[in-house]
Nucleic acid binder design. Structure first.
Lengths: 375, 375
DNA sequence: TTGAAAGCGCTAACAC
DNA sequence: GTGTTAGCGCTTTCAA
């Protein structure tokens, strides 16, 4: 057999890629199997249309050449890349990781690839990344958050790119709708947190927030906590509304110090994120404040952190995994012309552990109601 | 102007994508600007070659049509996708996230897209994902870990796909080399951990490991710890070598119980990962064992967790960020025909916090040497 | 059942 | 400088 060693025919004009030998194309296979390229394509896509004998020959050639079809060429014809782009605010905050995992899983199952970009909370960069993803022929885009340049919805609309937003701020989603959106009930979560503290008898409730810049979800949580405290007819002086510059131990402790150094000490603190608990707990430990005896703490998010905190953190579970899964599914629906709901807000859930108790001087403490339902 | 409303010419055979109106192509722009497609292409790629007047006309048409070049078509010609694929073992373990962030950053800076796949530690799935990524025309692949099917290196070699491995087990990398690799010194890290405990006066040192199945890095750490304990002439009975089924609180505590329930209690525990500290600390708290007074703990990894643990965790810093960055850079070098080093092992670093002290009955305690160099 | 040929949107010779 | 044209690798009519 003359073709045993199938070196590229000497006169070939086929440009070898810079990085190696030319890959076998459908043409090579056709030549090797003694059929036309159309037949090879049929064996690949609709094998039943090819008579067994030729099919075998083609399959053999395919295997011998380690043929890998060129998806790029296919995308060109089908006008579909079977890939979607995910734009994240950042990977520094690990709360998105479970959502990413869920998205990856859903897409992989459906045969879609996932491209990831982090815009580092820079809306201009986000817009640029969206453009690049469109250039790259993404079948759809998953956008995280709701702090965008107005050009972004315009871009998506003009190019009719299917897209779903996740982790949107409810207000913004209603105010400037940008297609189907999945949100967490951030405001509701902190209201529930404050309600829980209130139900435990706390009347001096403070708020400790993460950075709110370009992070509507955190801002929603923060403002909602304050509003809910007032809703209960309680005071909430500025000194009890601290914002940390970051989630690291140092920044959080500085913010926590502002709360604890003011004349009147709160008996409970509602956090906009579980991560903040650790710094606050550190600060309490340094001041020999016992949690929950001297200070109750309730988190928000229900990340791993909370489960391991000392004491284990009572918190509001936020369904990030479900959010990612829903976003991915809705986007795939959209790509396949089925229309997902415009805005769905996923429910939170109170997770009672051990960082909240009745205040020491409680009048209306109902300690019996506190029990762990997770751990 | 007749073309103000540029509806797709009625007779056009151009297939509209299923999801919307046909996007403007270079042909549309050429027609609108009254030039040839080549001129439009030149305006896009080598604007200096086009006379100003026509260039302006083209630019105007480009803007009016919101033209977005089709990267797929470009890739077809250049045979480069300017995209790379990253295969991860899992996203459930957040240690990889900082590496991913570093990779994303490096690639974004270089104008490359990042595709992410999780194989969930299933080597067959990893192989399938690699195939898919090759089909999709990735310019290179970033592989994580070193537990592969033998078909994987074969596949990469046959198709001459530039690839770099990260988080490789040093032994495996040397034994079955698979191209340029970046590793962490897992064995060295646990040896250093044990050395530190030994230097603090500990002679009864136990090991608590995360699951080792398909996770050579963890196995390396585990075995190295045991070997190092023996190297110091100490005993290390089986009961002092516990392996947790998972990193969650429950699994870790079960493993920790095995350590602490055996007749002879260790005075110190070396962990294969920071994450395990939290469960172990919980268990100690439940038994009223003070850390570090009654038990010293040293972690490995230096994740956020450790900074927030109570007490703050003395640990071995593992350079995951540097690993991701190096992997991305080396891969880009490889794609551009520059040859990166075959195997680089990144250095670890002891981070002394507060979870290690001399044992209560120490003979050779040198407490003065212990000081925090981070926090 | 198969093959020839026309593109998908773009770039790069090669003429003019 | 600019236009014409030949592909990139593949799928898909349309004939045979």
């Amino acid at each position: 057999m003359a073709e045993t060693r199938s070196k590229p025919s000497k006169g070939s004009k086929r440009a070898s890629t810079r990085t190696g030998a030319p890959k076998a194309t459908i043409k090579d296979i056709a030549r090797a199997a003694g059929v036309s390229v159309a037949t090879v394509s049929r064996v690949l896509n609709t094998p039943d249309l090819v008579v067994a004998k030729k099919r075998q020959a083609v399959l053999r050639a395919l295997r011998r050449h380690d043929y890998i079809p060129n998806q790029t060429a296919r995308s060109m014809i089908s006008r579909r890349s079977r890939a979607i782009g995910l734009i994240l605010p950042t990977l520094a905050n690990p709360v998105f990781v479970p959502a990413i995992a869920a998205i990856e899983q859903e897409l992989d199952r459906a045969g879609y690839a996932l491209l990831i970009n982090c815009c580092e909370r820079d809306p201009a960069r986000e817009l640029a990344q969206a453009r690049t993803l469109i250039e790259r022929g993404m079948d759809g885009l998953l956008i995280t958050g709701s702090e965008h340049l107005p050009d972004l919805p315009a871009l998506l609309a003009r190019h009719r790119i299917p897209h779903v937003s996740q982790d949107v701020s409810q207000d913004i989603a209603l105010d400037k709708p940008m297609g189907p959106s999945i949100g967490l009930d951030n405001a509701g979560a902190l209201a529930a947190a404050v309600d829980h503290l209130h139900a435990c008898g706390h009347r001096r409730i403070a708020v400790l927030s993460g950075p709110v810049h370009n992070t509507p979800s955190v801002r929603d949580r923060f403002l909602s906590a304050i509003a809910r405290i007032r809703h209960h007819g309680l005071i909430c002086p500025d000194a009890w509304c601290a914002v940390s510059d970051d989630y690291d131990n140092h920044s959080t402790r500085i913010a926590a110090q502002r709360l604890l150094d003011c004349g009147e000490q709160p008996t409970a603190v509602a956090l906009t994120g579980d991560l903040l608990a650790l710094g606050l707990i550190s600060e309490c430990r340094a001041r020999s404040l016992d949690i929950p005896r001297d200070l109750s703490i309730i988190g928000c998010g229900d990340t791993n952190m909370g489960q391991y905190a000392d004491p284990p953190l009572t918190t509001i579970h936020m369904p990030f995994v479900e959010m990612g899964r829903a976003a991915a599914r809705d986007l795939l629906s959209l790509i396949e012309d089925r229309k997902p709901p415009e805005l769905s807000i996923l429910p939170h859930e109170l997770v009672i552990r051990q960082s909240v108790a009745a205040p020491a001087n409680a009048h209306s403490a109902k300690t019996g109601r506190l029990r762990t339902n997770r751990l």
